[in-house]
Structure formats: C-alpha cells, structure tokens
Simulated assay, not measured.
Amino acid sequence: MAGRHPWRVRLPRSGAGEAELPALRLQDAALVHRAVPEPSAIEASAAGRVLAVSAVAPSAEAADRLARELLAAAPDDTLEHPARLVVLTPQGIEIHTGSALEPLLDR
C-alpha cells in the first residue's frame, strides 16, 4: 500500500508503438517483467512467439515463476493469467492482456 491506496505502476513499454499504458493497481501483489535474452534471433511461428511477459502474483517469487512459465508457453495458453505478453507473429508485434489482469488496470 502507498498510504491508504494501492501502489499504481505502469507496465513496461513493449516498443511496439503502444499508446499510453494504463496504470496497474498493485495491492498485496508483486509485478515481474521477463523478456527473452536475444529477441533478434527469434523467428515468429504461425501461432506467435512470446518475447516478453509482465506478470502479477501475490509474491515476487510467484510472479517470477508465472512469468518464466508464460515466456515458454504458447500465447493462446496464457490468456486467462494476470499477465501482459508481447508476442511476435508473422504479421508483427501483438500485445496480449490476460483476462485476470484486466480488473487491476486503471483505464
């Protein structure tokens, strides 16, 4: 908490020309951002390839574990988690926001 209010932070920019990102309310939670080490060496598959993940969980350890799991997962398998993914597809970069993250965003 920041005083009587939850912390408000912004998710890292993806570099994909995103508009201003909404703030994320963190209360009794941690945010971890993970990215692949060499994005230039990654090719996009038909389903897409996850380049970066921002994940929220009750602890930093749990958020880090979730981010690592989602970084290795197929993008379609990650949509219900409290996370935002930067995905490389044959058409370009896409941003996927998990349904469990939506309630935490200030829009």
Rank of each mutant, 00 (worst) to 15 (best):
R34N: 06
E38R: 01
R84Y: 04
H96Q: 13
A46G: 10
A41I: 00
A16I: 11
H96P: 07
L88C: 01
L79H: 01
V87K: 00
A19G: 13
L104W: 03
P90R: 10
S99L: 13
V32I: 03
A74E: 14
V53F: 01
R8L: 14
A29H: 00
G92R: 03
V86T: 12
V56A: 07
R65E: 14
S40K: 00
A19I: 10
L79N: 08
L24A: 07
S40C: 01
A23M: 08
S45F: 02
H81Q: 14
R84P: 08
D64G: 13
R49D: 04
L31Q: 09
L79Q: 11
T97C: 10
P22Q: 05
P103D: 11
A63W: 01
H81P: 01
H96D: 14
E94W: 04
G15L: 12
I42G: 00
M1G: 15
I95G: 08
R34P: 08
A52L: 05
A44G: 04
L26W: 05
E102S: 12
H33V: 09
A44D: 02
L31R: 01
A23V: 06
S59P: 08
R34V: 11
P22I: 10
A19K: 08
A57G: 07
L79I: 12
V32S: 00
G15Q: 14
A55M: 09
R49E: 01
L71V: 13
A2Q: 15
A30V: 09
S99M: 13
H33P: 04
T97A: 03
A23T: 09
R68T: 15
Q27E: 12
T89D: 07
P37N: 05
A55C: 06
R10I: 14
A30M: 06
A46I: 11
L101Y: 03
P6D: 15
V36G: 06
R68E: 14
E102I: 13
E61T: 13
H81K: 13
A83G: 11
P58W: 02
V53K: 06
A100R: 03
A63L: 07
A16L: 06
E94C: 06
T78S: 14
I42S: 00
L66H: 09
Q91D: 13
I42R: 02
V36H: 01
A19T: 12
A47E: 13
A29E: 04
I93R: 09
D76A: 14
A47H: 06
V9P: 03
H81N: 10
A52R: 03
V50T: 05
D77H: 02
R25K: 04
G48M: 06
G15H: 11
A83Q: 03
E69G: 03
A60E: 14
A52F: 04
A46F: 05
A74C: 00
L26E: 00
T89A: 05
V50A: 07
H5R: 15
V9S: 13
L70D: 08
L71S: 12
R84Q: 12
S59M: 00
T78I: 07
E38Y: 03
E80Q: 12
P12C: 14
W7H: 15
S59H: 06
L66T: 07
E80K: 09
L26A: 05
G48D: 01
D77Y: 05
A72K: 04
H5S: 15
A52H: 02
L105W: 08
L101N: 09
R107Y: 06
V86H: 00
L71R: 10
L101E: 10
G15F: 05
